[in-house]
Design a protein around this nucleic acid. Structure first.
Lengths: 221, 221, 221, 221
DNA sequence: GATGAATGAGGGTTCATTCAT
DNA sequence: TATGAATGAACCCTCATTCAT
């Protein structure tokens, strides 16, 4: 909406910087990221980043805000369209999954941020997260009131879906990146595939969603 | 057992180094950690670390291995004592929770490692993880065979518990560390406490366990 | 020629770095050289060296290349002007002597490089040396064919002049530098001076040239 | 003689240290040598070296002295057996060649020492060298007096043989060590071998000797 | 608006040397 | 006599940041 407009008004240079920074931060985290590399990937001089955006921390904040804001908007829109608590909950989770899918940088970014105790987390981002969190709080209250859901805290439920999802996303990267580890996990993959009788990567999000709904809903399938 | 004996045989110096390194890595991750600081916290010269253990990477491996090996042993022992699949699953999860509780560094360490795609993950650690993973595979197969569990992949179930647990552990740190973020989340906390009518921190692990069991068991309470 | 032009286009900073590096490498060799000292002597920050040139090895390569390239060009030009094999041979040797004279760093640099088995010798330099070597090969063939020279391998003849020349150049430095050694050699110097009836330093190159020509030429004087 | 006796009296430990040090210094020079590596190759603890011999510099002096002393003795013995100046000169050169052959470390050691202006050269060594040098001075005087030799300075003649010899010895190492350089020089080797019609390595010392004698003798073959 | 050049402040690692045992 | 442990002092290199142009 208005934030979108703001983003579109950004100059080509700034856009390229943000994009490059997003990728680099996602790949190697805040501490691992090099301003040099971001500048190179953006095709601009290092000093240009300082001119347009500011220091490394400001750049990081910008990158995080871009994606959390997007997530908040998408979730709000999705949930509004649903009617029953169950449908709203599904919409909430699916919107999260979609965001994570479309922003491959989000998963590692979040994990790292959480892992570091939010040291580099700007307040703007926290507000985005609160906005998202509030939506689920409403859904859970409504579901518990109607008897559709087991009474459960917002945070546990949120994490029950987000935790496995993010972990799984990052594990895929682990398997692809680290040859030594990949080799060791190879045996497991076979078993996993056999368990599901199909490709685990494609099914993982669905499977997690199924389990979380079983945990929350009173009505068993 | 024998690994414990090995650990106990370590010299005072090595013990102090490992301990300091564990804390520093947990606090700021691999990239953020400074060998200088680890040495200082251990009360030894920087070169002493290189003499006894090796470079930064070797030190990291040692730290990770110490805790994953411990976890693997604890889980194996716990699960062996249980009989039914449900009890075994509970034992499995509780042993994980205990390990995470006793090693406050484990949660951030794991998140960061996963977030970075296992870039710094030594193969020794991967083997520990495989060992753990194999235990759950057996439990899930047994439970599905006896009809006690819904058929479910090992990985989703593992992550369904570990994901929320680790996330929650780290979030506690976030709340305590970051003043800006803490303030924003303050409102949420109130609601959460009201939902449960008690201290969330104490209940979180239990609540997650309850939900995961609901997700997996056919006979839900 | 064109390489000269290239060198002249170098910025003041780069020129100062190369110059300082040349001196330091010549004084203490590759292993003994300290990047810090080179930076200090060049009057630039250490990082500036890395910005403009690269790591220590690249700097060394640049320094060596500068002088070997110069030598190759000078020798080629000199030899082209001569006609008979004997004159060409003299021109070849004199050009070498001139280069060694004008680049006081060359002698120690070469000895050290040869002494270390060419461990730090970049391929670019090797190519310069081959270029030089090829010239002598032609001269020797021509001289042997015309009957002016004894048949002799290129390498022995090259070394027959270069070896004593370089050794002598470095020995001068020994005498000047090391007080203990100088004292011991003092007696010898007296005898040497008496043998020649004049200053050895001034005559050394000439004397070596005379002997080498006697060794190679069929026609005795 | 008496020095030999001294050497034989050295304990096994000291012998092993000296031997290891000789090899290491020859391979990588004084600056490149690591006390750690010498200790390892000698199979003793690093501190043992300090206990028995002293610091790195003392160790270096010991190593150099061992070999120069040996050379001086060998040359004296050889030359004493010869009668004519020509035979004495040959004996002198051959004894040098033998020493260099039997102590593969000597060539690089000398080059490096000379290259560094004798910075690390202990006075004991200088005395050995003077002793050697004095022998040649006598031979040259006798030969010039008898008319067998062209009048020539001791130093030029000494270097005329030693220079090419040492250079050639080290170049062999260059060719074997550095793959990049070896490749470039490959073409030359072919030509050299063709020139001689046989293996250059085996003939090099002979060829150099032949040329030096041609340079010095009045009666050239 | 954009950049090439330059740098201060470390970062990880190495190494000759010492010392208690 | 011999050693494992420990260290201070560097060493090479990197990187976020600034500034003149």
């Amino acid at each position: 909406m208005y934030t979108r407009a703001l983003k579109d008004k950004r100059s080509k240079t700034v856009q390229r910087i943000i994009e490059a920074a997003t990728n680099v931060f996602a790949d190697v985290g805040y501490n691992g990221a090099r301003v040099d590399e971001i500048a190179k990937k953006a095709g601009v001089n290092k000093a240009t980043i300082y001119y347009h955006i500011g220091d490394k921390e400001a750049l990081y904040a910008q990158v995080l805000h871009d994606v959390t804001e997007d997530a908040a908007e998408r979730i709000e829109t999705s949930v509004e369209k649903a009617t029953t608590p169950t449908d709203k909950l599904k919409a909430y989770f699916l919107a999260i999954a979609q965001t994570v899918d479309e922003h491959p940088s989000l998963a590692p970014l979040m994990m790292r941020e959480v892992a570091s105790g939010g040291q580099n987390l700007p307040v703007v981002i926290a507000e985005d997260l609160v906005r998202i969190y509030a939506i689920l709080t409403d859904i859970m209250k409504e579901g518990a009131a109607s008897g559709e859901f087991v009474p459960a805290g917002t945070l546990p439920v949120h994490l029950l879906y987000l935790g496995p999802l993010i972990f799984h996303k990052n594990l895929e990267a682990c398997w692809k990146t680290n040859p030594g580890v990949a080799e060791v996990f190879a045996r497991l993959d076979e078993e996993i595939y056999r368990d599901f009788g199909q490709n685990i990567e494609a099914r993982a999000a669905d499977e997690i969603l199924r389990l979380v709904l079983r945990a929350v809903e009173t009505n068993r399938k």
